[in-house]
Design a protein around this nucleic acid. Structure first.
Lengths: 252, 252
DNA sequence: ACGACCCTTCGGCCGCGGGCGAACGGTGGC
DNA sequence: GCCACCGTTCGCCCGCGGCCGAAGGGTCGT
């Protein structure tokens, strides 16, 4: 008989899950896929600097582990994060590790792409960066979001989003929470995620209040969006455009 | 020059963090340490079925990675989870993997220790198991906790906990949230965590409303505790003792 | 039909790291 | 002072797995 000691039965599963992200290339893949787009193996191989065959094996492991899904279209095989749950796992772990204490001028975000990402981006399916944090802060100040005793929309917040045209019943069948906090890795501050965050992001992009920059995660508030959001949130439009690199305090 | 591609700079850190839990022995260590006690290396080595020298190396890696802290006392070196953040990381990952679809009779929790753990236990510093879920559900029904639009205590909930003697200002200086949701790995349902959950757990144990069974994580509601909690939560005491194995629906 | 392209499989290489036992130092009990 | 015990370090073995290039199969464009 094998000496099977009283170790927690969940240990093998936990180790297997962690093992999926324990490789630098696979971690880079999951981070890249946070943009919610479907990538081909060749694209990912190029982005990570490994051979297509190597990437193929990594993707097979990630798909097999349930983190990614693959959909074949003709001669292409697109891969994307399996869903909000998988995205959240990657976000959570990444947020815990990315501690660029201070994005000093000349430092990490000196290049324009980095600055654009810091200004505003999507975090899988919701808004992040200074844009996401600014909207979240404004909603908190206006009593739509309660962050002092947890993280939940108020009735006012639900009404505001519904007025805006958000379909908050969407995918309510799943156990995904309506509102949850997601820690921003540039701002180190929480912003709105969950189905409400996803709906808000969808609305903002659909109406042209913000637009994607290029093909990545970066988004930019449009003049129309700055006007509309600022008036509906009761804040100066400058807080949303945030052209300058100043940091604001949360204004408790 | 090396071919440094545009892979996310956070990838190495993410891989390193995941790598800490990507080994079965280290995963078992972290799960064992969820009981919030300080273990010696020898104890952990015995529990995991590896040599003391092997365990020593694992612990060194975990301490170095910031997940564990070590405190020396005489010829012993005690190790414990570094704090609520580290505990949360382990909890989150473990909850995502432990999917014992149905604790059928004769199945996973057939033995008495497993049944005791399913009834009630601590999850690092807050209550979990059917006990934790029952209290959380009761608080939700009584309007002390709002789960429909996120997860936050209501003003009533804050007052109820304060009346009970909870010191909710404790460690408010840190960024730890007052209330957050923690997914239970036996019940697959959320229960109260965060500083409020920790305070509630501390109160319940201090007043003898529940007592630890043996030296592990399992806790048992005392008759006094069943009376007190039931009357303060406005539910039948049977919901807390939960001697039988029935499952209740959340009663939205 | 042919070539181009994408993905996958396979064999081979190599380094990382988890495992052990032996040896060493530090602490406390006798 | 001696021994017992705990923890750590070291050398060693070995297997897993990340990496590549070569080869094969599938799909589309021409």
């Amino acid at each position: 008989m094998d000496t099977h000691h009283a170790a927690d039965p969940a240990a093998p599963g936990l180790a297997a899950l962690a093992g999926l992200l324990a490789d630098e290339t696979r971690a880079a893949v999951c981070l890249a896929l946070l943009d919610r787009r479907a990538w081909t193996g060749a694209e990912l191989a190029r982005a990570c600097g490994v051979a297509p065959s190597t990437m193929s094996e990594h993707l097979a492991r990630l798909v097999d582990g349930g983190l990614l899904t693959r959909e074949r279209q003709g001669r292409h095989a697109y891969v994307r994060l399996a869903g909000p749950d998988a995205a959240r796992l990657v976000e959570d772990l990444a947020a815990r590790v990315a501690a660029p204490a201070r994005p000093a001028p000349g430092g990490l975000h000196a290049h324009s792409a980095g600055r654009a990402l810091a200004r505003g981006r999507t975090c899988y399916d919701h808004l992040a960066g200074r844009l996401g944090v600014a909207v979240t802060d404004a909603m908190t100040v206006r009593g739509m979001l309660r962050q002092d005793t947890g993280f939940a929309l108020t009735d006012d917040g639900v009404a505001w989003l519904t007025d805006l045209g958000a379909d908050l019943a969407r995918s309510a069948s799943s156990r995904r929470p309506l509102a949850r906090s997601c820690l921003d890795w540039t701002e180190r501050r929480p912003h709105l995620a969950g189905t409400a965050g996803a709906e808000l992001c969808r609305l903002v992009l659909d109406r042209g209040w913000a637009a994607r920059i290029g093909t990545g995660r970066a988004v930019k508030v449009t003049p129309l969006g700055a006007r509309e959001l600022a008036s509906r949130l009761g804040i100066p439009a400058a807080e949303l455009t945030a052209a300058e690199e100043t940091r604001r305090s949360p204004s408790a």
